[in-house]
Every structure is written in C-alpha cells, then in structure tokens.
C-alpha cells in the first residue's frame, strides 16, 4: 500500500463475478452482524418458524379429530395433515424471508441513511439485491431446518431422508425464480413511499396461490389457473413430495422443468423492472428519500 496510485489501480482491475460474489458475501455478513446486534432478533429467529406453524396446526385441529385427514388424502395422497402443513409452512418461512428480507433491508438502509453511500461503491446494482438474497437464504434456510427439526420432534412429522437432495434442488430453483419477484419488491420499495401495501399484496397473493398449507384443488378454478404461473406453486408441491415420498416423488421432473421455464421469465421481467426503476430513481435524485 506504499504506492497509493497502484493500490487503487490494483483494486480497479479486480472485476467479474468473483469480486461481485465477494461483495455479496460481505453484504450478507454485514446484515447478520446488524441483526444479531439486537438481542430480540435472536429470540425471534428461533421462535419465528413455530409462530407461523402453531396457529395452522391449531386451526387444523379444530376441524380434524386426529392426525389423518381422509379429505386431504383424496386430494394429495398424503393423509398426515400435520406433515403436509408443517413442510409447507417451513417453505413459506423461507419464501417470506426472501421476499420481505430484501425489501426490509433496502428500506432500513434508506431509513438509517446508508443507501446512498452503498450506491457510491462500485458494486453492481443487482448485486445489492442478490447479496441481500444470499443473506435471506441463509436466514430462511436455517429457519426451515429449525422448524422441520422441531416438527419431527414435537409433532411426529416424518421425512424421507432420500428426498432431502431433490428437495434442495427444488429450493435452489425456487430461490432463483423468487429473485425475479425480489427485484420487483426492491423496485417498489425504491419508488413508493407507501410501497409496503403493494409488497404485502404481492407476497400474500403468491402465498395464497401456492399449495403451502392446502392443495390447489380447494381453490376456485380461476385461481388454480393463475397458480400455474407461479414457480412457488410448482416448488411447494415438489418440495413436499420429495420430503414425503423421497426419490419416487410424483411429478418431480415435470415440476422442476416448469420451474426452470418460469424462473427464466421471472428473472428477466424482474431484472428489467429493477434496472428501469433504479434509473428512474437516479434521474429523480430520490435515492435517499422515502
């Protein structure tokens, strides 16, 4: 570092996906450091997955006298409704963490005044989004493990160990597709003062259209058709079927192919929306405003 000029030039020469990944990793670690500096966050992190599952289990037990549901078995081939709901809710935790996490992080950077500073660094504009995504996957992923582990111990949920690998592949495809939605969420947060309403609407609609705690068969036909256009709908069934039936999960390949196709569309559309929005915000000079 003796030669100042050459130090900056050396940094300039470090480009490409590896340097972007390093920046994304730094973003992810920084968010962990900040989250963990609030003691309540740790408690929330541990309790959160259960606090979503428990009301679901309670609501289910109000209409079913035992652990098995004949009606659910008819529609899905899975009779153990607690297993069905527990796996779906665990995945929902991951999705909500991915969707809200990025929006929340950008919003927090805006609120505390660091967003402009971040945008003066040479990190790629989209890296901020998937860098935060990286954190949310770690965060949400740990939540899934925690919730499924506890569901096995407390509610007697059973999981087919052979299904873990295909389930991970499904999650990977799902996370990629969700990045497209995350770009859209980030755009909303950058632009709209009252954007939370739209984010809430978007998130809740995606969750409603996905077979997380109920099969799509109970939805009205119009909504069933709309559900086919969401990677989350395909991903939720594929993830659950993998963990319940293992490698013999029905429709696994078809679901993964559909997810690949939808991922491409979502990423493309989300990416374009984000880039356009970011440009618009810069032309308005409104990055620091909220």
């Amino acid at each position: 570092m003796d030669n100042d000029e050459s130090f900056n030039e050396r940094l300039m020469s470090r480009r490409g996906w590896r340097s972007e990944f390093r920046a994304a990793w730094a973003l992810s670690i920084k968010t962990w450091q900040i989250e963990l500096s609030y003691p309540l966050s740790i408690l929330w992190f541990i309790l959160m997955p259960f606090l979503w599952l428990i009301p679901m289990v309670l609501a289910g037990s109000a209409v079913s006298s035992g652990a098995n549901s004949a009606s659910l078995a008819d529609m899905t081939g899975i009779s153990d409704w607690i297993t069905y709901v527990a796996i779906g809710t665990a995945l929902m935790g991951l999705i909500i963490s991915t969707l809200w996490g990025t929006g929340m992080t950008l919003r927090r950077e805006q609120n505390v005044g660091t967003l402009e500073t971040l945008f003066t660094t040479p990190v790629g504009r989209t890296t901020f989004i998937w860098g935060n995504g990286l954190h949310n996957i770690q965060h949400g992923g740990l939540g899934v493990i925690l919730q499924l582990g506890a569901s096995i111990l407390i509610f007697g949920v059973t999981i087919n160990a052979w299904g873990i690998f295909p389930a991970l592949a499904v999650v990977a495809l799902l996370v990629i597709g969700m990045q497209g939605v995350v770009y859209a969420v980030a755009s909303i947060v950058l632009v709209a003062k009252q954007g939370w309403m739209l984010v809430e609407f978007l998130g809740s609609t995606l969750v409603l259209l996905a077979p997380l705690s109920y099969p799509l068969a109970v939805l009205p036909p119009l909504l069933q058709m709309a559900a086919a256009g969401s990677p989350l709908s395909w991903g939720a069934d594929a993830f659950r079927n993998s963990l319940v039936f293992g490698l013999a999960a029905p429709g696994l390949i078809q679901s993964m192919l559909m997810m690949l196709l939808l991922d491409a569309v979502y990423l493309l559309v989300g990416g374009i929306v984000y880039k356009t929005t970011h440009r618009w915000v810069r032309s308005r000079g409104a990055l620091a405003q909220f």
């Binding site: 470090r14 390093r22 920046a23 973003l27 660094t121 040479p122």
Partner: peptide
C-alpha cells in the same frame, strides 16, 4: 473497524 472492513470489501479489497 467493522464499518471500514465492510466498505473495503465492497471496493474489492480482500
């Protein structure tokens, strides 16, 4: 220190 290291990483320092 954490602040400076974090921003350093964004500027591609190891």
């Amino acid at each position: 220190r954490e602040n400076l290291v974090f921003f350093g990483r964004l500027y591609r320092l190891t």
